[in-house]
């Protein structure tokens, strides 16, 4: 197992952990946190692959992901605040699009 493999496994694990968290948690805030964890997975992956290839694009992608995450958190929290008023923090209660 090369170090790259380990790191990639780790990043996949972070991604799926975050995915599991979004799927399994009912609270919107916890889903948002899980979403962040999900984001960190591919971010780590980018860094690892960049380090492996010795190029700087990996780190650049990581910075973009960071910025993206920050923007998304900002919007997400704003939306969360609105949703909290309607549903009291339970994401299952936001089912107006139910068929």
């Amino acid at each position: 197992m090369t170090p790259l493999n380990i790191l990639l496994v780790l990043s996949a694990g972070l991604f799926f952990a975050g995915l599991f968290g979004v799927a399994a948690r009912r609270t919107i805030l916890m889903q948002l946190i899980s979403l962040e964890i999900m984001l960190s997975g591919p971010a780590l992956g980018f860094v690892a692959v960049g380090a492996y290839h010795g190029s700087v694009e990996g780190t650049g992608m990581f910075l973009m992901v960071l910025g993206l995450a920050a923007a998304e958190v900002a919007l997400g929290l704003a939306i969360y605040l609105h949703m909290r008023r309607a549903t009291g923090g339970d994401s299952d209660l936001a089912h107006r699009l139910r068929g």
Partner: peptide, 17 residues
């Protein structure tokens, strides 16, 4: 088929996954 359309975020996430 309507049972898929739960309107819940979590279901959709699982579906994507």
């Amino acid at each position: 088929a309507r049972r898929l359309q739960t309107g819940r975020l979590r279901t959709y996430v699982m579906a994507i996954a």
